[in-house]
Each structure stands twice: as C-alpha cells, then as structure tokens.
C-alpha cells in the first residue's frame, strides 16, 4: 500500500468518531462496576445516602459507628430481598426519607444514637431492596448486586467522613447544613409533584 493510500485509510478511519464515555451506563465496565455505580445514577438513592451519611457524620463518625454497622447489615438484607425482587415502586418512600433526614441535617437536631441507628437501618433496607436488577439473572445478577452493596456502603462512608472532617471547621460545618436544606427542598418539591400527579388522576 502506498503512503498516500495508507494516509487516506487512516483519515477515513478517523471519520467515524465515537464520543468517549468514560462512565457511561454502562457497556464494557463489567457487572460489578455497573452495580457499584448504580446508587450514583439513581438520584433518589444518591440524595438519601448523601443526606444519611452527612447526618451520621455530623453527629460524629466514631460515636455513631453502630449506625454504620446496622446499615451494613440491613443493606445486605435489602439486597437479598432485591435478589427475589420483593420491592415495588419506592420513589415516594425514598424521597420522604430524604426530606426528613435533610431537615434533621439542616436543623442539626440531635436525636440520639438509637434513633440514628434505626434510621440508618431503615434506609439501608430501602435502598437495598430498591436496587433490584430485574433484567439480570444468575451469576451476573449476583455480581451486580454485590457491586451495588459495595457502592451503597462506600457512598455512605464517604459522606460520613466528609461531615465528620468538616465538624471541626466552622464554615464547612455550615456548608454541611446547607446541603441538608438542599436535599430536603429538592425532595419536598418532587413529593409535591408526585402528590399533584396522583390527585389529578
């Protein structure tokens, strides 16, 4: 092949560009990472987990370690439920929980270790159950759900650590409360929309 022809082939090959999607949902990254990223791509999960993590971290990560332990266990139970597809449509429940926890975070209300643990347990269960992958089966489903479990717990841990670290800093501590008010406001708006859609039916 001549140099000219070779160059022409190369240029024609360039003529079929495809966008680079480093974290697209999500071909080519494998089932584990698909599951891992699942809580990041479901806005209701993302809001709820960030709100809960910041709330627990706001009260002290070490003092509230029981809440995280309980969350870990109930997430696993929820994911087992997801394996059997026990959950239905749960967006309203998830958003209600996000609104309540967002308000608790914004008001910096102290509700005690036991209530924190109960809230963490319920959230873990809800998010776990709502992570069902109905289109998958067998080993693929198992690996994806395992990835989701890791992703859910990592997201909570990051948020907890973030808030715990900022607890010692006056301005950033306020920023955490502002995020709480954002979560609560967004959730309340979508709940209002859901209510208006139901009432107009």
């Amino acid at each position: 092949m001549s140099v000219k022809r070779c160059s022409l082939v190369c240029m024609l090959a360039l003529a079929v560009p495809e966008p680079v999607l480093a974290h697209s949902p999500i071909k080519g990254i494998g089932n584990f990472y698909n599951g891992l990223l699942h809580p990041l791509f479901v806005p209701a999960h993302l809001l709820l987990l960030i709100a809960l993590g910041l709330f627990i971290g706001q009260k002290g990560m070490y003092e509230n370690r029981a809440a995280f332990a309980v969350f870990l266990v109930t997430t696993a139970i929820g994911l087992i439920g997801a394996w059997f597809s026990v959950g239905g449509e749960m967006d309203i429940v998830l958003l209600s929980a996000a609104a309540i926890i967002g308000l608790l975070l914004a008001s910096n209300l102290s509700i005690g270790l036991y209530f924190s643990a109960i809230i963490a347990a319920l959230v873990g269960l809800l998010v776990g159950i709502d992570s069902a992958q109905e289109t998958l089966s067998g080993t693929v489903k198992l690996v994806t759900l395992f990835g989701s479990g890791v992703g859910i717990n990592l997201l909570l841990l990051y948020s907890m650590g973030f808030a715990d670290y900022f607890n010692k800093k006056p301005w950033q501590k306020i920023g955490v409360r502002v995020i709480g008010s954002w979560v609560a406001a967004s959730s309340l708006l979508v709940l209002a929309l859901s209510y208006s859609l139901v009432s107009t039916k």
Binding site: V178, S181, W182, A185, L188, L189, A192, L193, Y195
Partner: peptide, 18 residues
C-alpha cells in the same frame, strides 16, 4: 441560606400543584 431553600420549596410546591 439554610432557610431560603426550604421556604422556596414551599413556594415551589404551590407552583407544582397549580
């Protein structure tokens, strides 16, 4: 800045519900 988004959500809810 903490109060504003929460009250804004109330106004937004009124808008959403028509």
């Amino acid at each position: 800045p903490v109060v504003f988004p929460l009250v804004m959500a109330f106004g937004g809810a009124l808008g959403v519900m028509g």
